[in-house]
Design a protein around this nucleic acid. Sequence first.
DNA 1: CCCCAGGTCGTCA
DNA 2: TGACGACATGGG
Length: 274
Amino acid sequence: MLKLKVQNFCLDSSINSGQFFRYNKIGDFYYIVLIDRVVKLKLEDGYLIIYSSNYNNLEDLIVEFFDLNTDYNKINKKLIEIDSNLKYIVDSCINFKILKMEPFETLVSYVISQNNSVNNIKNIVNKLSINYGEKILFENNEYYLFPTFDSIKDITLEELKNLKLGFRSNYVYELLNNIKTNKLDLDYIYSLNTIDAMNYLILNKGIGKKVASCVLLFAYKRYDVFPIDTWVKKIMGELFNISNEKKIEEFIKENYKEYSGIIIQYLFNYKRNN
DNA sequence: CCCCAGGTCGTCA
DNA sequence: TGACGACATGGG
């Protein structure tokens, strides 16, 4: 068991925020499939109580995944300074973190996410993992890692359709092919600035601005990008009477700059939970 | 039977 | 450029 002192951290809202799809809550504990292992954890009296199928380098992994070294108090203060009318939104997301997810998993998951519901995304990603991911035994139960690129690089279109990806089957199929032919290199993205990274991702069929934004925000920690989805459009219409996507983009970018992704994530959470 | 979900693409003006 | 329907599937 690993016990980790944490401050200003809400495990519930951070996991259950539509960012990450590989988790289950049983009793007080969350069971999450994190890269190469199963992690079971709960928050108790300011400590994370953590069990895992693999304790190697576990603390670093947890700190990185939950973004525990970023000073959100400072960021939140800035957000409120920019627009104090949104204080109640920021307050409602207090101790919420933007997760740092694995790029390949994030990319595939978010291609699947389009025009889909969080529950159904979870289902499909789980099915994909059960069929093609490595099996991990933990507490006498079977868990499945998200497939590596190698384990699904030769998947057929029909297999994808059988997993009920629907029209997204073609997108995932082509995406894997692009990685295979090195037309898409996920490591290359680290070297690109945000705008170039966005344009690079959008070259792939099935990846538009929204999916690319999610990938850059959730897997590459680019806080200056922000996904605009149906929930964000709704709340921006209600709060600011802005419904046009371009106008939303200009407004957020102009006001929130390098923290755009964080305020948008707060707005998304608030709208989805209320 | 309808509408909608962390959208994107192709087409048509 | 901008608007608009199609696209698979599951759930309300």
